[in-house]
Amino acid sequence: MAHIALATGFLLFLIGLYGALTNRNLLRMIVAFTVADAGINVVIVAVGHMRGRTAPILDGAVPAAEAASRIIDPVPQALVLTAIVIGVGITALMLAYAYKLYEARRSLDIGKFMELKW
């Protein structure tokens, strides 16, 4: 099962990267980046998954004494928690810049912004 999730994550990452490389519209590029972002998060969580174990929360079903043999790895989950929150911050920043670029040129086509291209 972890293999399926891992393959899905890699495919999402590749699809998102392809979209970011081929689309000319700024908003479409940002959409593609969020897809790639979701793919990477799926990969990291899938690496932490272990067959037949449960979520890292201690309660009646998982007493603290046998936690080490019953729960999955909590570290990747903590990492992905961080990654998702930072991801939305980056997306908001990219969207604000896209809005400003549209204000300057009345266009979202990346081909219209050639000043730094040589």
Partner: peptide
């Protein structure tokens, strides 16, 4: 991860290890 799983309840008293 083993350290976190074994020590969280005793050291910090939190049920949610994440």
């Amino acid at each position: 991860a083993c350290y976190y799983a074994e020590r969280t309840a005793a050291d910090l008293g939190a049920a949610n290890i994440v």
